[in-house]
Design a protein around this nucleic acid. Structure first.
Lengths: 352, 352
DNA sequence: GGCGCAACGGAAAAGGTTTTCCTCTGGGTT
DNA sequence: AACCCAGAGGAAAACCTTTTCCGTTGCGCC
């Protein structure tokens, strides 16, 4: 096991600036200038140093540079839920945005274990990261991470936080659900039900309200008994259909709280001989390709643009590192992705 | 935008060891000794330093430590496929194993773009990572990553590499498929088909051969026409059933190359009134919870123990950092996870 | 009372890089 | 011929921590 006490094994050391200077017969300062295009150097000196450095495979030691610059050019990414379907695109987006600034990402999966989270944060602070992004949605706002007095910018992406002074980015669940509602209404559906996840999730409440707003904006009544809250599973979608059809046979559309739920709903309807979309139109939420595309018919659904959210998070983090201060929530738009479960012409993506 | 040329914005600097020494009225060397339990110090000196350090929120700068130790206590993780279902558990396992050694992980998603991969590797080498783990399966063996002369241990986890001198870890696809076959045979099935992914995947060939071996070991004939290669999708599983039933009505079990395929197969069978598992038993591969558990009936399937594979990768990386040299492939066992699609008593996990 | 030894803690080097400041050389000017 | 200046590159400090090597102090002992 490697532990901080072990010495490094004997391994050919990477070339240092000193090695280059020695080989090229100049001083270390000159090498630095030659390689970085600084100072007053003859062209041939510069060139000689360059070729020597290349020959030796010299690569400046970022650790030393960071020590000097007081910037490590790294950030920490803490994911509080285990990496799942949602964190991945966010993460990709973040990397995308940060790559341009040549910033690397430390990954920490803290899976809701406070002790582990503490340890990760300690480690990140010791490594002098330039910033920390926290991601991973939960039912409720999480507590702000404890920096122990350190002064490092922290951004919450696809995560909610109780601290009003903290900046955080979330998808516009309300708007997304609205979009779904508008789509159904635009297709002539009037008797719309809502099968969704556990009410304790803020996203569930937002989506419910967004849908409601769309309906009411078009003069359609909002009925409590057409809203069924359960779990985030296919099984719940399946079960909900039974309840729904027993209560309300006149339903002509169901807006679902997630694609998984939607798939359960679609399967259940098909089994009962209810045609989708002819008899009942279905719209999902998440655009989780693996589910949405495999459903028969493929799901029209709402995409939260998580990669874009990640990219935005990266950009904002960059700004914060440069001294910007930000606070409060920013909600980023969702998009409707049209497939076949609503019967609309397949028009690709419609901007929100 | 942050760029290497920008100065750090004015932000309260973290306390240094000098600040602590100054505040405590001792020298920096003494502070170091007090905090690290080295040297000969009076107990009260030690205590005084400790409280001062705590008061100032002092946290040793890992960058400076790494410079001195010539070990950065970081590793790079390069994923060549976009982070998907498979990389995540591997990654968790790696983190798990490395956490004990207080090693942090740099995440790089190179999504098969060689230029981007190059840039990532450069960046990792500049940061003096102690090692690099490459993950992300592809159809064929990938080329070894190019370290440009640097001497850093590299391990491939859930990835194949053309270089015979490189160490890599893979799940035992052959053994896993064998396990699936044994299970079906043990339940009395004798006419077993195989619906799987594209033949160009080495995993597909391994699994096919593993299944074959199990059948032949029990004196069952292996028939080419009962093997259907297609894509990794549910749709293919669905389509394959049509072909299969037309050709071979006597089938009493289908071993599938993935859970997605299996789900397509199960759905297709149900639609045709074929009962699962009564008429035909189905076994999947992957144990992708979200698919396997939602299938009706839930899939009996093979788990590749990817988290364990990741943990193993972490352990081996630790050994390599300490000077161990390793080469060649190591295959890690799979497990059978019994649910309901084969009709066996639900006995939980059976070790391989 | 002088000596030696143990206990304690300070000084300084090392690690690799950048940057500022300084020195040296040579050419041009008066 | 003396001087100045620019051009070129070297020396050293700074970043922060650890560790080795010493120096100092106080005590016990002869």
């Amino acid at each position: 096991m490697a532990s901080p006490d072990d010495p490094a094994p004997t391994r050919p050391r990477p070339a240092t600036i000193w090695d280059v200077a020695h080989a090229a017969g100049v001083s270390v300062g000159t090498v630095s200038k030659a390689l970085n295009g600084r100072g007053q150097l003859r062209a041939e000196t510069r060139e000689a140093v360059r070729t020597t450095a290349a020959r030796l495979g010299f690569r400046p030691n970022d650790l030393a540079q960071s020590l000097l610059r007081k910037r490590s050019f790294t950030i920490g990414l803490i994911s509080t839920d285990r990496y799942g379907r949602f964190s991945i695109p966010v993460l990709e987006g973040i990397e995308d945005a940060l790559e341009a600034a040549r910033i690397s990402v430390f990954l920490c999966s803290a899976s809701d274990d406070p002790a582990r989270e503490r340890q990760h944060i300690d480690s990140l602070l010791a490594k002098r990261v330039d910033g920390i992004i926290v991601t991973g949605r939960r039912t409720d706002a999480r507590t702000a991470i404890d920096l122990g007095g350190a002064s490092v910018p922290v951004l919450y992406a696809f995560a909610q936080v109780a601290d009003p002074a903290a900046p955080y980015l979330l998808p516009d669940d309300f708007g997304g659900a609205s979009l779904a509602g508008e789509h159904l209404i635009g297709l002539g559906r009037t008797c719309i039900a809502h099968v969704t996840g556990p009410e304790r999730f803020e996203a569930v409440r937002q989506r419910r309200d967004g849908l409601r707003q769309a309906l009411e904006a078009h003069g359609l009544a909002w009925r409590r008994e057409r809203v069924l809250s359960g779990s985030w599973s296919e099984a719940w979608g399946h079960a909900a259909v039974t309840k729904l059809l027993a209560r309300r046979p006149g339903i002509d559309a169901i807006a679902c709280g997630s694609d998984q739920i939607a798939r359960g709903v679609v399967d259940a309807l098909r089994e009962r001989g209810v045609r989708v979309p002819d008899d009942v139109a279905i719209v999902g939420f998440d655009n989780w390709e693996i589910i949405a595309a495999a459903t028969r018919p493929p799901l029209t659904t709402i995409d939260m643009n998580l990669k874009h959210l990640g990219r935005e998070a990266g950009m904002r983090m960059l700004a914060m590192i440069d001294g910007d201060i930000a606070a409060g929530v920013v909600r980023l738009g969702c998009q409707l992705v049209v497939r076949e479960s609503c019967g609309a012409a397949r028009a690709g993506r419609v901007a929100s």
